[in-house]
Simulated scan of single mutants.
Amino acid sequence: MRKILGLCLTVLVAALLVSYGVWTTQRPMGHYLSDLRIQLVANEGMPAGRGNLLGIEARLYPTDYQDLNRLHRKLAAWLQQARDQGLLNDKTLVVLPEHIGTWLYAAGEKNQFYQADTVGQAMHWLAWSNPVQFLRAMAQAEGQPRLADAYLRMKASGMAHDYQQVFGGLAREFGVTLVAGSVVLPDPRLEDGQLHIGSGPLYNVSLVFGADGQPLGQPQRQMAPDNHQRRYIKAADPAALQVFDTPAGRLGVLIGSDSLHADYYARLNDQAVQLIAVPAFLPNRERWNQPWRDRRGVDLPAGSLTEAQAWRHLTLTGQAPRSTAKAGISVFMQGQFWDQNSAGESFTHAPGAVPAGQPLEQRSDGARMINVWL
């Protein structure tokens, strides 16, 4: 009798494991209606043959990432509308927001993942749907908490490929230089023009793609992650701050909170930078108008300004005469990822100028563009 019960139990466990294995491979996709609206909310200067900085304040949701064709269709529709309005030319530099590539970990997942109510629930579905990748990532995780590191690491190889395919493809399709926001990857590097990952710590990086779709330089790593993210995203050596030669001029990229540090502007001055792109992300929609929170290495007392005032004061706008760049642009991510929303008003900036943008209370739904002619 015991043998029969043991055999039945073994068969039952095997059947459950096989069923679970089959379940993890299924990735059905439902119909999804993308919001392709985009509004030009700031257009500074006049065309003078020197190009322009065009920021795309993307409004995205988890289901936009379910299928790469769907994501491409939405981004391409926004760029096509920019082209129709005469905002794209062979000297245009398009800037996308921080972490627009990080959300690629949401590609190709099960419907339960997208239908979750919170980020935490979605991450549980991510782990259950990819058990082998998750266990491998947990073993390699270096940051704290280890779960946050593992969730970002577990699909990194596919994310690196998709990031280059999507954003390099858009640069080539529209014939522009494109600062592809950022993506979090373990120890990323370019080899023979291809983005690869390593097994080391996580870095928040941005690639700049030329009009031929090929990367310019190495991935630019973030040097001063925000207070929360620095627990699992490693800060890069400031000596790795690069300059990219583009048709519009010499470009520096400061990812998110890097743009709040005066020392980095001085380093860019030493390399004769003319333009500065800031892909940015700020969680919590209410935070933009809340008191400024202290940042490590930033000489500004907490509560002395609002977040909005501080970002504008500490970026290129407030750096004159310490920064010799002639223009820049800060582009924030919008949208809703489960229970996590985002804040920030994208704005153009030049030393001593009043930043151009659109107040939050005046905004309509859909994505937004800001443009400055050089």
Score class of each variant (00 low, 15 high):
3 K>H: 10
3 K>F: 09
5 L>C: 06
21 G>I: 03
22 V>K: 03
22 V>A: 08
24 T>I: 10
24 T>S: 06
28 P>Y: 00
28 P>T: 01
29 M>I: 11
35 D>A: 09
39 Q>E: 15
43 N>Q: 15
44 E>K: 08
46 M>V: 13
49 G>L: 06
49 G>F: 04
52 N>R: 10
61 Y>F: 12
64 D>K: 09
71 L>Y: 11
75 L>S: 08
76 A>L: 07
81 Q>M: 09
82 A>L: 12
84 D>E: 15
84 D>S: 11
89 N>W: 06
94 V>A: 03
97 P>E: 01
100 I>P: 15
101 G>C: 08
101 G>H: 09
102 T>G: 10
103 W>M: 12
104 L>V: 02
108 G>W: 01
112 Q>T: 08
116 A>C: 03
118 T>I: 00
118 T>C: 02
119 V>N: 03
120 G>L: 06
124 H>V: 11
128 W>F: 10
129 S>D: 12
129 S>A: 13
130 N>A: 11
132 V>D: 04
136 R>S: 14
138 M>I: 09
139 A>S: 15
142 E>N: 13
147 L>Q: 15
149 D>F: 02
151 Y>A: 15
153 R>L: 08
154 M>V: 10
157 S>T: 15
164 Q>T: 08
166 V>R: 08
170 L>S: 02
171 A>F: 07
180 A>T: 00
180 A>I: 01
180 A>N: 05
185 L>K: 13
187 D>N: 14
187 D>M: 10
190 L>K: 14
196 H>F: 12
196 H>G: 14
198 G>N: 14
199 S>L: 12
202 L>D: 13
210 G>H: 04
211 A>S: 14
212 D>Y: 01
213 G>R: 03
214 Q>C: 09
219 P>C: 00
219 P>Y: 00
222 Q>N: 08
223 M>R: 10
226 D>W: 00
228 H>S: 08
232 Y>G: 01
234 K>G: 01
236 A>Y: 05
239 A>I: 02
241 L>I: 06
242 Q>G: 07
245 D>W: 04
247 P>T: 01
252 G>I: 02
252 G>V: 02
252 G>K: 07
256 G>M: 06
256 G>N: 15
256 G>T: 05
257 S>F: 02
260 L>W: 12
262 A>Q: 14
263 D>Y: 04
263 D>P: 12
263 D>V: 07
263 D>S: 13
264 Y>L: 15
275 L>R: 10
276 I>D: 06
279 P>Y: 01
280 A>M: 09
285 R>K: 13
291 P>C: 04
291 P>T: 07
302 A>R: 11
304 S>K: 07
306 T>F: 05
308 A>Y: 06
310 A>G: 10
312 R>N: 02
314 L>Y: 05
319 Q>L: 02
321 P>L: 00
332 F>Y: 15
334 Q>V: 00
335 G>A: 08
336 Q>P: 02
336 Q>F: 08
339 D>P: 06
340 Q>W: 03
346 S>N: 04
349 H>S: 10
357 G>M: 01
358 Q>V: 03
358 Q>G: 00
362 Q>C: 04
363 R>Y: 11
364 S>E: 12
364 S>W: 10
369 M>R: 13
369 M>Q: 12
372 V>K: 05
373 W>Q: 11
373 W>P: 06
374 L>P: 07
